[in-house]
């Protein structure tokens, strides 16, 4: 898989290191000549020096055959234009823009460009993690639109001893796995939940709070 990544700084460096380690073919576009030299030394990626929102530079970087373009510059306007050029001009099937201003994440979506905001992701992570002690792990996936949460059922949980089929969950929520004595079980309606079970829940940010309340009894 060939990926184009446009940007600089630590974000770009560590993302690139991650991608090359996974064996992706990587092309980096960066405006700063000196940083380009450094990146080329440190990473096994092709580095193109120039403005990523210039169609000529994108072509030189091989946008035509790329499967994904990731724009992570510190300037939202550049990230938007890079992604739009990549998809409209070069037909790149998957483009993703960093929205430095969290309000721009929604705007970019409305303008037809998938976007993510690290501010959004980190703040929701902190809020949700801080909300409940029983949460032992939390992972936002799907650009932060889905949460995977691991919780521990305490002895005073309102669902301890209940069968899954008797627990009414809001729409778009799921108990994916029950871990009992270190053994994972994919539960069915007839499965019983017990105190000390660890549950892996799939929720959406909208129903995350209410779902946790059902399992822990605590007000978020």
């Amino acid at each position: 898989m060939k990926i184009l990544i446009i940007g600089g700084g630590k974000t770009l460096y560590f993302l690139s290191r991650n991608f090359t380690a996974k064996g992706y073919e990587l092309v980096i576009v960066n405006r700063d000549r000196e940083e380009c030299v450094q990146l080329a030394r440190q990473l096994s990626a092709t580095v193109v020096c120039g403005d990523g929102s210039d169609a000529g530079i994108l072509r030189d970087a091989g946008a035509m055959g790329a499967e994904a373009v990731l724009a992570v510059t510190p300037r939202d306007q550049d990230n938007l234009v890079i992604c739009q050029l990549a998809s409209l001009q070069f037909g790149v099937p998957r483009v993703l823009a960093l929205a430095n201003d969290p309000e721009n994440a929604e705007i970019f979506d409305k303008l037809g460009v998938s976007a993510f905001s690290t501010t959004h992701i980190i703040s929701s992570l902190i809020e949700q993690r801080a909300a409940l002690e029983q949460i032992t792990n939390l992972l936002p996936v799907g650009e932060g639109r889905v949460n995977v949460t691991e919780i521990l059922l305490g002895p005073d949980s309102p669902v301890a001893g209940k069968f899954l089929k008797d627990i009414t969950l809001p729409e778009n929520a799921l108990v994916a796995v029950v871990i009992r004595n270190d053994r994972p079980i994919v539960p069915r309606g007839a499965s019983q939940l017990l105190a000390d079970d660890r549950l892996v829940l799939i929720t959406l940010p909208e129903n995350h709070g209410p779902v946790l309340k059902i399992f822990t009894g605590e007000e978020k």
Binding site: D54, A55, V81, K110
Partner: peptide, 28 residues
């Protein structure tokens, strides 16, 4: 890029009827 982003937001999100952006790069 500022002009293109602002123009799109004005047109698509605020429904401004007449929107014009200056763009120096002919390819863009």
């Amino acid at each position: 890029n500022v002009n293109l982003m602002a123009a799109q937001i004005a047109r698509r999100i605020f429904n401004v009827p007449c929107v014009m952006a200056r763009v120096f790069d002919p390819k863009r």
